[in-house]
Computed example of a mutant assay.
Amino acid sequence: MAPPQICVIGSLNIDFVTYTPRCPDAGETLTASSLAISAGGKGANQAVACGRASFASKDTQNVSVSMIGAVGADDPYYAALLRPTLEGSGVSTTGIKQMKDNQTGSATIIVDEGAGGENRILFVPGANYTGMDNAEAVLATTRDIHLEQGVVVMQGEIPRATTLGLMQHFNDPACRSHLIFNPAPVFTEGIPLSALAGTSVLAMNETEAVLMTKTVQEFLTLPQQTQDLKPEELAPLFHKHAQVQIVLITLGAKGAYYSTITGKQGFVPSAAVEKVVDTTAAGDTFVGYFAAALAEFVATGAPLAGFDAQIDTAVQKANVAAAGCVQRKGAMQSIPFAYEI
């Protein structure tokens, strides 16, 4: 049996997080509660979640996790925050390129404490775009880290052209790896059906699921507006028109819905939460924990359809991890290790 392996391809950011009783109106200056500077980026967040999900104990890591991305060369935040957090979570950083004359990506996050920890985010791509603009170069890096049979996790914070090229490669039936695609954010131009076709796992929140239906919209005759469709009505569209094997739709505090191309469907309620502090990395935590469960299954060499027997348990654990995440401040630092939940 091949060792379980995950490769996360995506963004690495420095997060500047401001906590405020409420968001200021236009032209208003408001005294906020606090400022925190921390490691972030959806790619890096999900890599940390994959890594921490694979620790059955403090000394036992069940899945090998690697990160591929780009940062600014000699960036003190990378050396002091990003790399130590990744490596401390069991993530290899050998696939991260340091770019001269480029800045590390950044995110300015406003956390509205008066609205239950809801957040607003401004993203500056930096090296996430300039260093990730060549799909062939990224694929060469996957070969350098000896990715053979495993799980590849991708999001929407690197260039669209690179993302599409990588999706077509990893979704090719000849490829032995399985792609988990989290379209966050959803590209304005959408995802062509040719790139989405055959994706192993499409993981979205409710808003992303509605936006992503535009990818298959030309094939549909809907009796009602897409945004009015329920998760159990949206998911089959991706199975039928894009042959997506597994569709996951997270529903915030309500839980998560899953559907497989073989016909298994289910709703898993969220885990109990005493107090929501910060929702920043909840979705990334969910994706990372699900990816870790899938990677362990893929390593057995069994057909993906066999994961139907484990999917409910995998979603339950991902929900529990996400619930642990929202009760802490920050992005990466709020993601729990598996032995903590």
Rank of each mutant, 00 (worst) to 15 (best):
192 P>F: 14
225 Q>M: 15
103 Q>F: 15
33 S>H: 11
265 Q>D: 12
58 K>M: 06
316 Q>D: 02
28 E>Y: 12
9 I>K: 04
53 A>D: 11
62 N>P: 03
113 E>F: 07
214 K>H: 14
101 D>K: 14
129 Y>R: 07
43 G>N: 09
309 A>E: 12
55 F>Y: 13
56 A>E: 11
37 I>K: 15
133 D>P: 05
224 Q>V: 15
145 I>V: 04
328 R>S: 05
94 T>C: 07
207 T>C: 05
84 P>I: 03
339 Y>W: 15
223 P>E: 15
322 A>R: 01
286 F>N: 01
268 V>Q: 01
196 L>K: 00
222 L>S: 04
240 K>T: 12
278 D>V: 00
150 G>T: 15
294 L>R: 08
226 T>V: 14
208 E>C: 07
300 T>C: 06
197 A>G: 11
23 C>E: 14
142 T>A: 06
39 A>G: 11
146 H>P: 03
226 T>A: 12
284 D>L: 08
314 A>T: 11
136 E>M: 01
215 T>N: 03
308 D>L: 05
103 Q>S: 12
119 N>F: 00
191 I>M: 02
61 Q>L: 12
264 K>V: 13
47 A>I: 04
322 A>Q: 05
315 V>Y: 00
286 F>S: 00
67 M>A: 13
17 V>W: 11
319 N>Q: 15
9 I>T: 10
192 P>N: 06
37 I>Q: 14
316 Q>Y: 06
169 H>R: 08
180 I>F: 00
274 E>L: 09
254 K>H: 03
59 D>K: 15
22 R>Y: 12
197 A>E: 07
303 P>C: 05
202 L>S: 01
30 L>Y: 15
48 V>L: 01
159 P>F: 10
307 F>E: 13
140 A>N: 03
121 I>T: 15
145 I>A: 01
139 L>K: 02
324 G>E: 04
215 T>K: 03
7 C>N: 08
8 V>H: 03
133 D>W: 04
4 P>E: 10
284 D>A: 13
300 T>I: 11
102 N>F: 13
288 G>W: 00
335 I>R: 14
289 Y>G: 02
50 C>L: 09
93 T>S: 14
326 V>L: 10
187 F>N: 01
8 V>K: 01
49 A>M: 05
76 P>W: 13
42 K>S: 04
13 N>A: 13
285 T>E: 02
111 V>S: 01
289 Y>S: 02
134 N>H: 13
192 P>S: 15
137 A>T: 10
229 L>M: 08
339 Y>P: 07
24 P>E: 09
68 I>E: 08
177 S>E: 01
87 E>I: 02
228 D>V: 08
230 K>P: 01
237 L>V: 06
69 G>L: 10
301 G>P: 12
153 V>Q: 06
18 T>S: 09
